[in-house]
Simulated scan of single mutants.
Amino acid sequence: MNTALFPDLVVNGETVPHTVVAAEAQNHTGPSDKPGIAWRKAANAVAIRTLLLQEAQQRGLEADPAEVGPGRFETEEEALIRGLLDTEMDGAAPDEEAIRTEWDRDPERFRAPPLWEVSHILCSCDPRDEAATAKAKACIEGLAAKVQANPRAFAHIATDNSDCGSKSSGGALGQLGPGDTVPEFEDALRGLKAGEITAEPVLTRHGWHLIRMDAVAEGAVLPYETARPRISDAIQKTNWARQAQAFVNKLVASAEITGADLRRE
């Protein structure tokens, strides 16, 4: 299949099956009325992966899948790409001067994790169920109106209506830190000041939440020696990403590619 919207992807004479690009397109966003945008993003990603695999195979590299989690291993393609990049990237740790320079730019950036004391009201649902999600949203919006009319009644409203076990304590979840809750909930916490309630309900995998920030303890600025490993790791990752992009750009510059627009990125 070759259309103006979904042209064949050909990398150095190798035609990539449309099914491969279509599978990758599920990982990319674009307006529902413009499917070509997600397809082009996917084609670019697949073109880069194909280039890296071609280079690894040309160099005669062999896949050695690493364990990436309990009982989970890389695919052969992932292992080949990692092996190739490992041969090209300079993984050396940054020197002391580079770490100190980054620290001196703004030590305030390097803090201990914050602590949040939080209460919430939950109208539970499975977000994959549109009807249940809409019903739960109507529920939380009704409770939000009650809270807005009488903020001091938050705990009472939680006790009477919340679908979370915390209802027995007026919705209080106690102290939370980064990583203690689901990402969507944590993102909402990061935007709240002490005493504030979320202006809009927050949807997570558990349902719709109305969240109140009871207290915030900002993390203290870390001393240099404590922050040093974090800074070193961040610099190393930045350097690695920069080198990887330069390597990919080099491969793109000498490749023959149709069906993707890598040179315009």
Rank of each mutant, 00 (worst) to 15 (best):
T133M: 01
D126H: 02
K146Y: 01
P107L: 09
P113E: 13
G191F: 07
K137F: 11
S168V: 14
G174Q: 03
H120I: 02
R109N: 11
F185G: 00
A199I: 00
V118P: 10
L203T: 05
W103G: 10
K137E: 12
A112P: 10
P107A: 08
G195T: 09
F185S: 04
F154N: 09
K167F: 07
L189E: 00
W116H: 10
A134F: 01
G219W: 11
E117I: 08
A217V: 13
C123E: 12
C164K: 03
S166A: 15
E184W: 01
T181I: 14
P127I: 08
C139H: 09
I197H: 10
G142C: 13
Y224Q: 09
P178T: 03
K167I: 03
G171Q: 13
P201R: 10
G170Y: 04
C164R: 05
G191E: 08
V202M: 03
W116S: 11
A136E: 00
P183A: 05
S168R: 13
R190K: 07
D160I: 14
L222A: 11
K137P: 08
T204C: 00
N161Q: 13
V216I: 04
C123Q: 11
E141A: 00
R128P: 06
G219F: 13
L210Y: 09
A134G: 10
S166G: 13
F154W: 06
A138Q: 05
R109L: 04
V221A: 13
E117D: 15
Q175N: 06
A136I: 03
T159R: 14
P183H: 01
S124M: 03
A194Q: 01
V182H: 01
W103V: 12
I197T: 08
T181V: 08
E225Q: 07
C123L: 08
K193M: 09
G174R: 01
M213G: 02
Y224T: 04
C164Q: 15
A215L: 02
G219D: 00
A188W: 05
R105P: 14
R152S: 15
E200F: 12
